[in-house]
Simulated scan of single mutants.
Amino acid sequence: MKKLLLLLLFVSTFSFAQSSYIVDKKGNKSLVRDALTEVILVDKRISYVNVGKSWEKYIKFEDLDYAFLGLSYLKSFHLNQKKRAKVYFVFAEKEDKKLIGVAITVTSSTATGKFMSSKTYYELYVIDNNETIIDQIDATSGRSDENIELRGKIAPMVRKHFSDCPEVISKLQKYDVADEENRNILSFISDTDYIECK
């Protein structure tokens, strides 16, 4: 019985490890190891190790079609039919629209390597199936009145388009907590777990 239990544990662990994969624009699918996969937003690439291998590989965003990495779904989009695609996390998806976005932190330092400042840029879009933008908010972690006001519009925008998706509203409620500078809501964009609305 112990051997059977260990075998089942090994099989379920191995099949979970294979749940993450990357698909390039040519349709090639690579199974990747969750613990050794990193999305490097600033460099516009994914660092990964294939299942059963030990060496690191990279895929540039320009070569990526989509990727399921753990609970996150990353996809290439031509927003408003732009020629050049950009990659975003898909936070939620229903039959006629998607909620996508990204949070990119840029850190600056002096020539000697001393940390100077850090700023995070947040993009959140609601798009239709043709990748046309229906609604959007671009905000930063800055303290200006304009940024505080923009952050205050995130929760209403999500509710407007995804009020019929209880999982999205539940996730939103975790982060839509009143605070002086509307900073808590930014964690909604940093939480990249994918929700497929039923």
Rank of each mutant, 00 (worst) to 15 (best):
E181W: 01
A178Q: 14
N184A: 12
N130Q: 10
T140W: 07
S187D: 15
E131G: 10
D164P: 06
I185D: 01
D176A: 12
D138N: 15
D135G: 00
S141N: 05
L186F: 02
S141T: 08
Y175G: 07
G152E: 12
I137C: 05
R151G: 07
L186M: 08
I154L: 03
D138P: 07
I127W: 00
E146R: 15
Q136N: 12
I148K: 09
A178S: 13
N182Q: 12
S187V: 10
V177S: 11
V177L: 13
Y175P: 04
Y175C: 04
E149H: 14
D138T: 15
R159A: 07
K160V: 01
T140D: 07
N182H: 12
R151E: 10
V168L: 08
I154A: 00
S141E: 05
S163I: 10
V158E: 01
D145V: 02
P156I: 03
D128G: 03
R143S: 15
I169T: 09
M157D: 03
T132R: 07
N182Y: 06
L150R: 11
E149Y: 11
F162Y: 06
N182S: 09
A155Q: 11
N184V: 09
C165F: 01
L172Y: 01
G152D: 05
K160G: 02
N184S: 15
I134W: 02
D179I: 08
E131D: 04
Q173D: 14
P156Y: 02
D176I: 05
I133A: 03
F162M: 02
I154Q: 02
Q136M: 12
D138L: 09
D135H: 02
G142F: 06
I133R: 00
D135I: 01
L150D: 11
I137S: 01
G152Q: 06
E149R: 11
I148C: 02
S144G: 10
I127M: 00
D128N: 08
I154Y: 00
R159T: 09
I148T: 10
K174D: 12
N182D: 08
A155K: 07
N130E: 13
R183I: 10
P166G: 07
N182W: 04
F162W: 06
L186R: 01
E181S: 09
R183F: 10
F162T: 04
E131V: 08
G152P: 10
E149W: 13
V158P: 05
S187H: 14
Q173V: 11
I185T: 03
V168G: 05
R159P: 04
N130D: 14
S141F: 06
G152A: 08
D176Q: 04
R151F: 09
N147L: 12
C165L: 03
S163N: 15
F162C: 06
D135P: 00
E146W: 12
D176H: 07
V158F: 03
K160D: 05
D164I: 03
D176F: 02
D135W: 00
S187L: 14
E149D: 14
A178G: 09
P166S: 05
